[in-house]
Design a protein around this nucleic acid. Sequence first.
DNA 1: TTAATTTCTTGTCATTTGTCAAGAAAACTC
DNA 2: GAGTTTTCTTGACAAATGACAAGAAATTAA
Lengths: 196, 196
Amino acid sequence: MINEKQDLTEFIKNIIPDSSISSIQTIVDLFQYKKIKKGDLLVVKGCFSDDYFFLSKGLMRTYLYDVNANEITTDFHTAKNIVFEVTSFFKRTQSQVYIQAVIDCEGYYIPYEQLNSLFHEMPTFRDFGRAILVKEFIASKERTISMINQTAEQRYSHLVKSNSEILLSAPLKQIASYLGITDSTLSRIRRDFSKI
Amino acid sequence: MINEKQDLTEFIKNIIPDSSISSIQTIVDLFQYKKIKKGDLLVVKGCFSDDYFFLSKGLMRTYLYDVNANEITTDFHTAKNIVFEVTSFFKRTQSQVYIQAVIDCEGYYIPYEQLNSLFHEMPTFRDFGRAILVKEFIASKERTISMINQTAEQRYSHLVKSNSEILLSAPLKQIASYLGITDSTLSRIRRDFSKI
DNA sequence: TTAATTTCTTGTCATTTGTCAAGAAAACTC
DNA sequence: GAGTTTTCTTGACAAATGACAAGAAATTAA
């Protein structure tokens, strides 16, 4: 296949621009293709997260259940990003959350063991891993902040502007819980938005 | 001073046990002593976070203001931990939050520039930095999860058991906002707890 | 194309939790 | 140690949001 894993190569180049082409190629070669059908799970609560997954196409989400057994989506993962469950992956503990394909997805993964040895052997890969960690940590912190200093309307409005692919692919209920409200309330926000 | 920075040395040893004593010593030597009085700020909103701070003694907190101008504490930082603001520190952007000494604090810090060059020069320090990142990221994720799948009562009860030093040092209002409730509500929770 | 299922909208109602206020208690300050 | 300030408790009340339900719309499947 020509251009196989092209987007993964581009992604890594972007994250660590100073690295040699050959070292990036070595990393890319170790990733394996994987398809995940809509609704299927990459990470299951109670299991160990073993995949360090580059999402090439599609949309995924992280979710769990709240005190009243409502499903809460904590994160959406858009294409061209690394998807994995930090806690389970690094602590080697059972995951507390699910990661699911919102629509049909494809991408490339490395299993934990391989990633671990690659980490020890290859400085380039260590740099990559560290950069991803920083990137994801920052995204997570910014989300926490937006849940505090923005209204649900503002978060919705921001989502419309910056991540419209999520709006198009994910059901209202998932988006609502991501914004910290119920689907009824989001439906009303949309109505009010369209009036303006 | 004998035993100066002893706790910092111990902390680093714990984080990266496989490193040589001499490389740990090199790192420790670069940290500089700093005192922060109760109420004073380590990080100010709108400024750049420049300190990578090891809190030796005391208690700190990260806070910001919500939509209704209420002060919200997002994190408490207990002694023997690294305290810094990831986003501002790594992205070199203005901080969106404050980090404050809840009580009189002391510890050791490295300014950004120095940390950065140390990162390039010393693999041991890179490993340390990465380990701290993982540790903090995991803590942050676990907090997010507890805000969803636990009640405020459960979070309070957990705090009592595992971090009683916070209960003893921080005012009720800060603890309440950390738990996601108002001080009135926390006061009522406490009353109900003491009845049992 | 029709049937079945899922998703979305909107109404009503109840409940939780916050707001405000006032007094008690505790902690500082001089 | 007296006074001042901050912190904590508790009551009454209001308001926002969620729960529930029912119907409309859209999507999927057969």
